[in-house]
Amino acid sequence: MYEFKFHRPTTVRQAAGLLARQEEAKLLAGGHTLIPTMKLRLAGPKHIIDMSQIEGISGIEMKGRSLVIGALTRHVEVATSPIVKENIPALAELAGLIGDPAVRHRGTIGGSVANNDPNADYPAAVLGLGATVITNKRRIAADDFFKGLFETALEPDEIIVRFQFPKVNKAAYMKFPNPASRFALVGVFVSKRGSDIRVAVTGAGSNGVFRVTSFEEALKKRFGAKSLDGMTIPADGMSSDIHGSAEYRAHLVGVLARRAVAAATA
């Protein structure tokens, strides 16, 4: 691991100031991506800005029709929260599928979404529920947030502080985990909120999380697994590696979308 200095700001404003001022600075939330990446010397930030001492950026509450989750909220808290289970159970289930219990004790929703790993679970929920990402500067709609592999709309000194998830009528997440890493080889999140239907896919796309508009159109006619019978997506643009070919991933998108809709309507 390369040498670094660390900082422990107590407000978001201080953290943003450090991010803006220090060259090659990185935010540290749960650390379960950043620390392994630093050990491999794939990342070598000169400054680590630890978010754990910042008050008010963790926790879960309902505000009107929205579920609000602080950026530093750990996976285990989302997975076991009675508020999440009651209002968007699919989100609690998704959080309970991330990594393993020890990883869920440390990893955070803000860290996962800001990192935008193409195989991470949370991006599928944020896009699949049409959430709003609230930063220290602005509100960003999920549709405008994810920009490609490990790329987001976040500016260099911008920090996610919380997420706002609209309460939906129906939702489910189906994941085909890589048997070794437990990352999503493919994961599909579906939701229905009135006439707003979303099908978001993680793990499959070579450009990160994406929506399947053809599936969404079919589900607008009738929100049932049968509406997707025989539907597939092209293998073009799918990832291909030792874990699965582009064709295999494209096939899984159809299979998992049908299973997710079946689970959401069960």
Binding site: G31, H32, P36, V103, H105
Partner: peptide, 24 residues
């Protein structure tokens, strides 16, 4: 961060000690 041989309890929760800085 995969094998769990380093798991300890931090404030009563299982944590991978290889993926946590001492100062954290």
């Amino acid at each position: 961060s995969q094998c769990g041989a380093c798991v300890v309890h931090v404030d009563g929760k299982a944590v991978k000690a290889c993926t946590t800085f001492a100062w954290q």
